[in-house]
């Protein structure tokens, strides 16, 4: 394995969010930084200074400003009764790069394996039709799978088995999509100096069983290839996992926020590689209430006019009064739907 580790810039401060307890490495020249993921508190120096783990690979943000702005404009478009602050340009201005970690594990496997592999083979079959002209036959080639036992020994080295470094790793991927790690490059100090680096919450010791399973899966695929088979039915490995080495890869996420009528901040996150945007798009109940008030006033005036004109107005006035409440109902419904989304992980 060729290791490219980042020489930790000096100094990198370890800071924590008192609201959500997320920890970050923050460039020392950054001051008064709000937690980019919860936006509920300012980051404060952590009680315990952490050492940045060895970073082997970094996925650099690959989106230009125009692409990000277009993505944000698409995100804001169609939102019901948006807050005055919920604008693509505001979101774009407040973007902060957050590098988040995953574990990369290298290791050696040595031992015996036992498997049942499936081998494709072709059989000649036929399809036949009977009509007025008698029977006609058509040859059909079908592919079937034959199971066969195989055993053997394996001694191989595997690089970069991926495992989560954050407890909400899966949730974040489900929100902003996955990353193409083949576009990662060896870590350089300047790449992480432009943003915050989130500190992992899962220690390698917690991941050992998971990584061994992943290594076994890779070994199973290799044994299948070595046996020239197409399918794996059963695979067991009985041997040692040696020289497990843990490094990290950093993935880019951009975080921004907008404020609502009460001054609360709502976070929006963007996958720094594919541009997928995630966040709650809350509706302004204040704005919806105002529109409802105006419509209600117009409806009342209209009802009064009809009343004094001695027109049979009962159905008409009822409809007008109900229509006046639609903005408020729509805003409540919209917010209800958005609240069902989990906040950015």
């Amino acid at each position: 394995m060729t290791e490219h580790t980042v020489n930790t810039p000096d100094p990198f401060l370890t800071q924590t969010c008192p609201a959500c307890a997320r920890n970050y490495f923050v460039p020392a020249h950054w001051h008064n930084v709000a937690c980019p993921i919860c936006q509920k508190a300012m980051l404060v120096p952590a009680a315990q200074t952490r050492k940045m783990p060895s970073v082997e690979l970094i996925v650099k943000p690959s989106l230009d400003k125009a692409t990000i702005d277009a993505q944000l404009a698409r995100f804001c478009k169609g939102s019901a009764f948006p807050f005055p602050d919920f604008k693509p340009e505001n979101l774009s201005q407040r973007l902060v790069l957050v590098n988040w970690p995953i574990w990369l594990t290298d290791g050696d496997l040595k031992g015996a394996w036992d498997a049942r592999f499936g081998y494709d083979y072709q059989v000649e079959s036929s399809r036949e039709q009977m009509g007025n002209a008698g029977w006609s036959s058509q040859k059909v080639i079908k592919t079937r799978v034959k199971d066969e036992p195989r055993k053997g020994f394996i001694e191989r080295h595997y690089d970069n088995v991926l495992s989560p470094a954050l407890h909400n790793h899966q949730e974040r991927l489900s929100q902003i999509g996955s990353y193409q790690l083949n576009q990662a490059s060896p870590g350089k100090a300047e790449d992480i100096a432009t943003g915050l680096t989130q500190i992992g919450t899962i220690a390698p010791s917690e991941l050992e069983d998971f990584v061994k399973q992943e290594l076994s899966k890779r070994a199973a695929q290799d044994c299948r290839l070595a046996s020239d088979a197409q399918h794996i039915r059963n695979f067991t490995f009985n041997g040692d996992y040696n020289n497990l080495r843990w490094t990290q890869a950093l993935l880019p996420m951009l975080a921004s926020y907008y404020t609502d009528d009460k001054g609360n901040r709502h976070v929006v996150t963007i996958n720094g590689q594919n541009g997928a945007v995630y966040g709650q798009r809350m509706a302004s109940v204040k704005k919806a209430g105002l529109i409802t008030g105006i419509l209600l006033a117009v409806a009342i005036i209209l009802v009064l006019i009809l009343y004094f004109a001695e027109v049979d107005f009962f159905i008409c006035s009822s409809v007008l009064l109900i229509l006046a409440f639609i903005p408020l109902i729509r805003a409540a419904g919209w917010n209800n739907k958005e609240k069902n989304k989990r906040p950015p992980a």
């Binding site: 015996a112 195989r150 055993k151 053997g152 044994c223 070595a226």
Partner: peptide
């Protein structure tokens, strides 16, 4: 190691394969 099995050519370095 594997009674009833014999070694067959492997398509991958580092893996020995035995078949019945």
């Amino acid at each position: 190691h594997f009674p009833g099995f014999e070694q067959i050519p492997s398509k991958l370095e580092g893996v020995l394969v035995f078949a019945p």
